[in-house]
């Protein structure tokens, strides 16, 4: 029998060192897009050459909320919608951390929407990766703040009539310093975007459009995973730097991708340190990079 007859060892996978392989297999459905986004993120971590001991990842609740649980990092699977404030606490109390939020559209823009806009307003020093599958997946396909008009969900069985969020515009208009959108098909571009975002500062927001063939696609008769990827291939266009007011997503309509905002502007921590430094002079004692903890 030849060696190729043996199944491949999962631990040989290039991103295995970034994952909790003792938790595999993951819970995501076949053709779900979240795993692809995780792969891109792990690759971006490798390419950006960041110190993994200093990366903390926080998720909320939902399908994408499980990402923190699979990453071999300091990982926090928190409450529904509260990943951003939790990650804010981690960052402010140990500023040397790279604090990453990885969660879904319902989690971050529905129940957590208030935290999203305020973190963007503050240009808080966190990286937010939002996987948008247009629906509440974990609970069974209910309507989301991102569900396109006329798309069906289990709680809008006759089609959605609520206007959805344009998330890049929301983030940009609130003050985020870096805003991008890609789909699961744009593996190289998404990976590069994440790598760049890891080197930027402040509130960095990456929206990733991902297929949910179990619920969104089934309820809307859009076919399986392959059909959805083909749809992205045929309908996604790249427009770097476009005004984010132009990037609304309609049902089965064009998906505008690209790097929309990439601005150098002071972050929350920079603003705070600069301001206290100015008004208090050398009496100002900033939070130590490794945290304000008591030790011998």
């Amino acid at each position: 029998m030849s060696a190729t007859a043996h199944p491949p060892n999962p631990n040989d996978h290039p991103i295995a060192p970034y994952l909790r392989m003792d938790r595999m297999p993951h819970i995501w459905c076949p053709t779900c897009g979240i795993g692809t986004v995780v792969k891109c993120f792990a690759t971006a971590l490798e390419e950006a050459d960041v110190d993994l001991d200093k990366v903390a990842i926080t998720s909320g609740i939902g399908c994408t909320g499980r990402v923190a649980g699979y990453m071999k990092l300091d990982a926090f699977h928190t409450t529904h919608g509260r990943a951003i404030p939790f990650a804010t606490g981690l960052k402010l109390a140990r500023p040397e951390l790279e604090s990453v939020v990885f969660s879904g559209d319902g989690d971050l823009s529905g129940i957590g929407g208030n935290h999203f806009i305020h973190a963007a307003r503050r240009n808080m020093d966190i990286l937010v990766i939002l996987v948008n599958n247009f629906i509440y997946g974990m609970t069974g396909g209910q309507n989301a703040p991102t569900t396109p008009i006329s798309a069906k969900s289990s709680t809008m069985p006759f089609g959605n009539f609520e206007r959805p969020f344009n998330l890049p515009h929301l983030a940009a208009s609130c003050g985020a310093s870096y805003v991008s959108r890609w789909t699961c098909l744009h593996i190289r571009r998404l990976t590069k975007c994440m790598r760049v975002a890891l080197r930027r500062k402040g509130f960095r927001f990456i929206e990733v459009i991902a297929p949910c063939s179990t619920l969104y696609s089934r309820l809307n008769r859009l076919g399986g995973g392959l059909e959805l990827m083909r749809f992205y291939h045929d309908n996604a266009t790249i427009k770097h730097g476009i005004d984010t007011r132009e990037v609304d997503i309609g049902f089965q309509d064009t998906i505008i991708c690209g790097n929309f905002v990439d601005e150098e502007k002071p972050t929350f921590l920079e603003m705070m340190n600069a301001h206290y430094g100015k008004v208090l002079g050398d009496r100002y004692v900033p939070m130590p990079a490794e945290g304000g903890w008591l030790h011998d």
Partner: peptide
């Protein structure tokens, strides 16, 4: 958010 931030911060030892 306040309580979430405090829970997060506590995990840094602060």
């Amino acid at each position: 958010a306040s309580m979430a931030a405090v829970a997060g911060a506590a995990w840094t030892g602060t």
